[in-house]
Protein backbone atom coordinates (compact mmCIF):
# COMPACT_ATOMS: atom_id res chain seq x y z
CA UNK A 1 0.00 0.00 0.00
CA UNK A 2 2.64 2.49 1.06
CA UNK A 3 4.75 1.21 -1.80
CA UNK A 4 2.06 1.95 -4.27
CA UNK A 5 1.57 5.38 -2.74
CA UNK A 6 5.27 5.97 -3.04
CA UNK A 7 5.23 4.85 -6.64
CA UNK A 8 2.31 7.14 -7.37
CA UNK A 9 4.17 10.05 -5.86
CA UNK A 10 7.27 9.28 -7.88
CA UNK A 11 5.17 8.90 -10.98
CA UNK A 12 3.43 12.23 -10.56
CA UNK A 13 6.77 13.84 -9.84
CA UNK A 14 8.09 12.43 -13.08
CA UNK A 15 5.05 13.51 -15.02
CA UNK A 16 5.47 16.99 -13.60
CA UNK A 17 9.18 17.03 -14.34
CA UNK A 18 8.61 15.80 -17.87
CA UNK A 19 5.92 18.38 -18.48
CA UNK A 20 8.25 20.99 -17.13
CA UNK A 21 11.01 19.78 -19.37
CA UNK A 22 8.70 19.74 -22.37
CA UNK A 23 7.47 23.22 -21.65
CA UNK A 24 11.00 24.48 -21.30
CA UNK A 25 11.74 22.77 -24.59
CA UNK A 26 14.48 20.67 -23.09
CA UNK A 27 15.35 17.07 -23.81
CA UNK A 28 13.03 14.86 -21.82
CA UNK A 29 15.81 12.51 -20.76
CA UNK A 30 17.48 15.39 -18.91
CA UNK A 31 14.71 14.96 -16.33
CA UNK A 32 14.23 11.85 -14.24
CA UNK A 33 15.37 9.20 -16.69
CA UNK A 34 18.04 6.78 -15.64
CA UNK A 35 19.97 3.99 -17.25
CA UNK A 36 20.68 0.30 -16.98
CA UNK A 37 24.20 -0.86 -17.48
CA UNK A 38 26.15 -4.07 -17.21
CA UNK A 39 28.34 -6.66 -18.85
CA UNK A 40 27.47 -9.76 -20.83
CA UNK A 41 29.90 -12.63 -20.39
CA UNK A 42 30.23 -16.13 -21.67
CA UNK A 43 30.31 -19.10 -19.34
CA UNK A 44 33.19 -21.29 -20.50
CA UNK A 45 35.64 -20.98 -23.37
CA UNK A 46 34.77 -19.06 -26.53
CA UNK A 47 33.39 -21.48 -29.15
CA UNK A 48 35.57 -21.92 -32.22
CA UNK A 49 34.28 -19.77 -35.08
CA UNK A 50 34.74 -21.53 -38.39
CA UNK A 51 36.46 -19.65 -41.20
CA UNK A 52 34.29 -18.69 -44.18
CA UNK A 53 34.94 -20.01 -47.67
CA UNK A 54 34.19 -17.08 -49.97
CA UNK A 55 35.52 -18.69 -53.14
CA UNK A 56 32.16 -18.15 -54.86
CA UNK A 57 33.17 -14.52 -55.28
CA UNK A 58 36.81 -13.53 -55.95
CA UNK A 59 36.08 -9.94 -54.87
CA UNK A 60 35.13 -11.15 -51.37
CA UNK A 61 38.21 -13.38 -51.19
CA UNK A 62 40.41 -10.41 -52.07
CA UNK A 63 38.84 -8.24 -49.35
CA UNK A 64 39.85 -10.82 -46.76
CA UNK A 65 43.31 -11.60 -48.11
CA UNK A 66 45.01 -10.32 -44.95
CA UNK A 67 42.16 -10.68 -42.40
CA UNK A 68 40.48 -14.07 -42.84
CA UNK A 69 36.71 -14.01 -42.32
CA UNK A 70 35.09 -16.04 -39.56
CA UNK A 71 31.51 -16.72 -38.58
CA UNK A 72 30.28 -14.13 -36.08
CA UNK A 73 27.86 -16.19 -34.03
CA UNK A 74 29.94 -15.66 -30.89
CA UNK A 75 32.18 -12.62 -30.75
CA UNK A 76 33.95 -12.97 -27.41
CA UNK A 77 36.50 -10.44 -26.12
CA UNK A 78 39.66 -11.28 -24.15
CA UNK A 79 37.86 -10.76 -20.82
CA UNK A 80 35.06 -13.12 -21.83
CA UNK A 81 32.74 -10.24 -22.78
CA UNK A 82 30.17 -11.13 -25.45
CA UNK A 83 29.42 -8.63 -28.24
CA UNK A 84 26.20 -8.36 -30.26
CA UNK A 85 23.82 -9.13 -27.41
CA UNK A 86 20.65 -7.05 -27.52
CA UNK A 87 19.44 -5.77 -24.16
CA UNK A 88 15.97 -4.33 -23.84
CA UNK A 89 13.05 -3.94 -21.48
CA UNK A 90 10.72 -6.90 -21.71
CA UNK A 91 7.07 -5.90 -21.81
CA UNK A 92 7.86 -2.20 -22.23
CA UNK A 93 4.61 -0.29 -22.18
CA UNK A 94 5.92 3.27 -22.07
CA UNK A 95 5.47 5.82 -24.75
CA UNK A 96 6.95 5.21 -28.19
CA UNK A 97 10.52 6.47 -28.30
CA UNK A 98 11.21 9.42 -30.51
CA UNK A 99 14.13 7.89 -32.33
CA UNK A 100 16.20 10.52 -34.03
CA UNK A 101 19.08 8.33 -35.14
CA UNK A 102 18.85 6.36 -38.37
CA UNK A 103 21.17 3.38 -37.85
CA UNK A 104 23.12 2.09 -40.82
CA UNK A 105 23.42 -1.55 -41.84
CA UNK A 106 26.41 -1.86 -44.14
CA UNK A 107 27.43 -4.60 -46.55
CA UNK A 108 31.19 -4.41 -46.25
CA UNK A 109 33.77 -6.97 -47.35
CA UNK A 110 30.90 -9.39 -47.96
CA UNK A 111 29.88 -9.31 -44.29
CA UNK A 112 27.20 -7.36 -42.42
CA UNK A 113 28.34 -4.44 -40.25
CA UNK A 114 26.96 -4.54 -37.63
CA UNK A 115 26.19 -8.25 -37.47
CA UNK A 116 23.23 -7.49 -35.18
CA UNK A 117 21.21 -4.31 -35.58
CA UNK A 118 18.77 -3.50 -32.78
CA UNK A 119 15.85 -1.24 -33.64
CA UNK A 120 12.78 0.21 -32.02
CA UNK A 121 9.49 -0.53 -33.77
CA UNK A 122 8.95 1.93 -36.63
CA UNK A 123 12.52 3.22 -36.30
CA UNK A 124 13.98 3.94 -39.72
CA UNK A 125 17.27 2.34 -40.70
CA UNK A 126 19.40 2.47 -43.83
CA UNK A 127 20.91 -0.43 -45.72
CA UNK A 128 24.02 0.64 -47.63
CA UNK A 129 26.77 -1.16 -49.50
CA UNK A 130 30.50 -0.40 -49.43
CA UNK A 131 31.31 -3.31 -51.72
CA UNK A 132 32.25 -3.50 -55.38
CA UNK A 133 30.22 -6.68 -55.82
CA UNK A 134 26.45 -7.09 -56.03
CA UNK A 135 24.45 -8.08 -52.95
CA UNK A 136 20.79 -8.67 -52.39
CA UNK A 137 19.42 -7.70 -49.01
CA UNK A 138 16.73 -10.18 -48.02
CA UNK A 139 15.29 -10.09 -44.48
CA UNK A 140 13.14 -13.09 -43.53
CA UNK A 141 10.50 -12.01 -41.02
CA UNK A 142 7.60 -14.26 -40.11
CA UNK A 143 5.03 -12.95 -42.62
CA UNK A 144 2.40 -13.09 -39.87
CA UNK A 145 4.36 -10.47 -37.91
CA UNK A 146 6.27 -8.22 -40.33
CA UNK A 147 6.38 -7.77 -44.09
CA UNK A 148 9.53 -9.00 -45.82
CA UNK A 149 11.16 -7.71 -49.00
CA UNK A 150 14.17 -8.45 -51.17
CA UNK A 151 16.19 -5.77 -52.94
CA UNK A 152 19.32 -5.91 -55.01
CA UNK A 153 22.25 -3.66 -54.11
CA UNK A 154 24.83 -3.72 -56.89
CA UNK A 155 28.00 -1.58 -56.50
CA UNK A 156 27.10 2.08 -56.02
CA UNK A 157 23.46 1.29 -55.16
CA UNK A 158 21.52 4.02 -53.34
CA UNK A 159 20.66 3.27 -49.68
CA UNK A 160 17.46 1.38 -48.92
CA UNK A 161 15.53 3.04 -46.07
CA UNK A 162 13.10 0.85 -44.15
CA UNK A 163 11.47 0.28 -40.76
CA UNK A 164 9.77 -2.66 -39.01
CA UNK A 165 6.26 -2.38 -37.59
CA UNK A 166 6.31 -5.09 -34.94
CA UNK A 167 8.79 -6.52 -32.42
CA UNK A 168 10.53 -9.57 -33.87
CA UNK A 169 13.95 -11.16 -34.25
CA UNK A 170 14.42 -11.08 -38.02
CA UNK A 171 17.22 -12.98 -39.76
CA UNK A 172 18.65 -11.26 -42.83
CA UNK A 173 20.60 -12.88 -45.62
CA UNK A 174 22.22 -12.30 -48.97
CA UNK A 175 21.30 -15.03 -51.43
CA UNK A 176 24.29 -14.23 -53.63
CA UNK A 177 26.71 -14.78 -50.71
CA UNK A 178 25.03 -17.43 -48.57
CA UNK A 179 27.47 -16.99 -45.68
CA UNK A 180 26.16 -13.46 -45.12
CA UNK A 181 23.84 -13.73 -42.12
CA UNK A 182 22.76 -10.95 -39.82
CA UNK A 183 19.91 -9.98 -37.56
CA UNK A 184 17.44 -7.15 -37.15
CA UNK A 185 16.28 -7.31 -33.56
CA UNK A 186 13.14 -5.19 -33.32
CA UNK A 187 12.01 -4.32 -29.81
CA UNK A 188 9.71 -1.82 -28.15
CA UNK A 189 11.29 0.92 -26.08
CA UNK A 190 14.90 1.67 -25.06
CA UNK A 191 17.59 -0.86 -25.97
CA UNK A 192 21.35 -1.34 -26.19
CA UNK A 193 23.73 -3.75 -27.90
CA UNK A 194 26.77 -5.06 -26.02
CA UNK A 195 30.12 -3.91 -27.41
CA UNK A 196 33.25 -5.97 -28.03
CA UNK A 197 34.03 -6.12 -24.32
CA UNK A 198 30.46 -7.14 -23.46
CA UNK A 199 29.51 -3.75 -21.95
CA UNK A 200 26.21 -2.11 -22.53
CA UNK A 201 24.18 0.85 -21.31
CA UNK A 202 20.48 1.31 -21.94
CA UNK A 203 19.76 5.03 -21.72
CA UNK A 204 16.51 6.97 -21.41
CA UNK A 205 14.92 4.59 -18.93
CA UNK A 206 12.18 6.24 -16.86
CA UNK A 207 12.32 5.33 -13.16
CA UNK A 208 10.55 2.09 -12.36
CA UNK A 209 10.90 -1.67 -12.14
CA UNK A 210 11.82 -3.57 -15.27
CA UNK A 211 12.67 -6.97 -16.62
CA UNK A 212 15.84 -6.61 -18.68
CA UNK A 213 16.02 -9.18 -21.45
CA UNK A 214 19.29 -10.22 -23.06
CA UNK A 215 18.96 -11.75 -26.52
CA UNK A 216 21.82 -13.48 -28.26
CA UNK A 217 21.68 -15.43 -31.49
CA UNK A 218 20.42 -17.91 -32.37
CA UNK A 219 17.75 -17.98 -29.68
CA UNK A 220 19.37 -17.41 -26.29
CA UNK A 221 17.27 -15.16 -24.05
CA UNK A 222 17.77 -14.40 -20.36
CA UNK A 223 15.99 -11.98 -18.08
CA UNK A 224 16.77 -10.08 -14.90
CA UNK A 225 14.70 -7.77 -12.76
CA UNK A 226 16.03 -4.30 -11.94
CA UNK A 227 14.73 -1.09 -10.45
CA UNK A 228 15.82 2.24 -11.84
CA UNK A 229 15.63 5.26 -9.55
CA UNK A 230 14.98 8.73 -10.93
CA UNK A 231 18.16 9.80 -12.67
CA UNK A 232 19.91 6.71 -11.34
CA UNK A 233 21.66 3.78 -12.88
CA UNK A 234 20.83 0.12 -12.28
CA UNK A 235 23.14 -2.79 -13.03
CA UNK A 236 22.33 -6.11 -14.67
CA UNK A 237 25.13 -8.47 -15.65
CA UNK A 238 24.44 -11.56 -17.71
CA UNK A 239 26.29 -14.82 -18.21
CA UNK A 240 25.39 -16.65 -21.39
CA UNK A 241 26.06 -20.25 -22.36
CA UNK A 242 27.07 -21.16 -25.91
CA UNK A 243 25.01 -24.14 -27.05
Amino acid sequence: MTRRYHFGAVLSAIVLLCCGALILGQKVNAAGEGSITGTVKLDGPAPHMRGIDMSKDPYCVKQHASNPAHLETWVVGSGGGVADTVLYLDGWSGAAQTETSVPVFDQKDCMYTPHVLALDTNQEFKVVTSDQTAHNIHPLPNPMINVGWNQSQPPGAPPVTKAWKNPEVIPVQCNIHPWMHGWFVVVKGPYAVSDDSGHYTINNVPPGSYTVKAWHEPDEAQTQKVTVAAGGSATADFTLKAK
Binding site: N136, G148, W149, A157
Partner: peptide, 14 residues
Protein backbone atom coordinates in the same frame (compact mmCIF):
# COMPACT_ATOMS: atom_id res chain seq x y z
CA UNK B 1 9.51 -5.97 -58.71
CA UNK B 2 11.23 -9.27 -57.89
CA UNK B 3 9.58 -12.58 -56.97
CA UNK B 4 8.76 -12.25 -53.26
CA UNK B 5 9.41 -15.32 -51.16
CA UNK B 6 12.39 -16.25 -53.38
CA UNK B 7 16.02 -15.06 -53.82
CA UNK B 8 15.02 -13.14 -56.98
CA UNK B 9 15.33 -9.52 -55.78
CA UNK B 10 13.77 -6.30 -56.98
CA UNK B 11 15.97 -4.06 -59.13
CA UNK B 12 13.60 -1.07 -59.18
CA UNK B 13 16.11 1.15 -57.33
CA UNK B 14 18.99 0.25 -59.59
Amino acid sequence: TGLDGTPMPSFADN
